[in-house]
Design a protein around this nucleic acid. Structure first.
Length: 255
DNA sequence: ATGGTTGTAACACAA
């Protein structure tokens, strides 16, 4: 199974780049975040034409998550364990080929001093609680998404300058570490030790051209699934496109 | 560096 995660930053604005990438890479599963579209306007038919079923939870303007799969999907559920029909659509999951696949969009948090930063930290706790209720560290599961946290110094362009700021604060690192202590492995880090490989670059100031990026899009798998992972990589190609997302896909292959 | 750019939507806000 070939699985990818991509914060598309509006699925309607990304239509051309997204479907060209899908045709080239042919993942079995694509988890998307920030689709920014209500379900009725989601390009379901276009995915179907390419052989993908879709499960989505969208809203107007903000957030929105989805999973596209060319393998059968079942047990689709939306929201954290403590919410039904959440206002902010940030989590969806489905069972695909025996694997519980989550597509998650962790709150940005705005700044470390913002009230929404507290909500961001709380989201990690609630996500772990959701995993505890729905799966097990001994079962195949993967949490894919935009975590809005860069795990360590290798994952940011200037650790000394960014330490303590949004995406790279002690509180966010503790929140991510606590989530991973459920029994999750960062698949990209299982395969690559080097720094300077990012999944997001700011649109502003030529961030991509200067490689001033962050690795904040992660595939966090339980150990039994991680043991089946043969490849995990960041595909930077669609970030070069005309009208790119500010994020680029992360892709993993399982035996 | 409190700037800069993009998307949605509306002349602001989130990222």
């Amino acid at each position: 199974m070939k699985l990818a995660t991509w914060n598309v930053n509006s699925i309607r604005a990304r239509y051309a780049v997204l479907f060209a990438w899908l045709a080239r890479v042919e993942p079995d599963v694509l988890c998307m975040q920030e689709t920014k579209v209500v379900d009725d306007d989601f390009p379901t038919d276009e995915f179907l034409r390419m052989g993908y079923a879709v499960a989505m939870a969208g809203q107007k303007t903000y957030n929105g998550v989805a999973i596209a799969s060319r393998l059968p999907m079942s047990d689709v559920r939306v929201g954290l364990h403590d919410e039904t029909d959440p206002k902010d659509k940030r989590l969806i999951r489905a069972k695909i080929d025996g694997v519980v696949v989550y597509s998650a969009y962790v709150p940005n948090g705005k700044s470390v001093a913002s009230p929404s930063f507290r909500e961001k930290l709380r989201f990690f706790t609630r996500l772990r609680e959701t995993l505890e209720r729905e799966t097990s560290p001994d079962a195949p599961a993967v949490v894919c998404g935009d975590f809005n946290v860069a795990p360590d110094d290798r994952d940011v362009y200037d650790p000394d300058a960014l330490r303590g700021h949004l995406h790279f604060s002690d509180a966010e690192h503790a929140a991510l570490a606590d989530l991973k202590r459920f029994g999750l492995v960062d698949l990209f880090r299982e395969k690559h030790d080097e720094g300077g490989l990012y999944s997001w670059w700011d649109y502003r100031g030529g961030g991509f051209h200067r490689n001033l990026g962050l690795r904040i899009d992660l595939l966090l798998a339980t150990r039994p699934l991680a043991a089946r992972c043969s490849i995990a990589e960041i595909d930077v190609e669609p970030r070069h496109a005309d009208k790119p997302s500010d994020h680029t896909p992360v892709v993993a292959t399982f035996d």
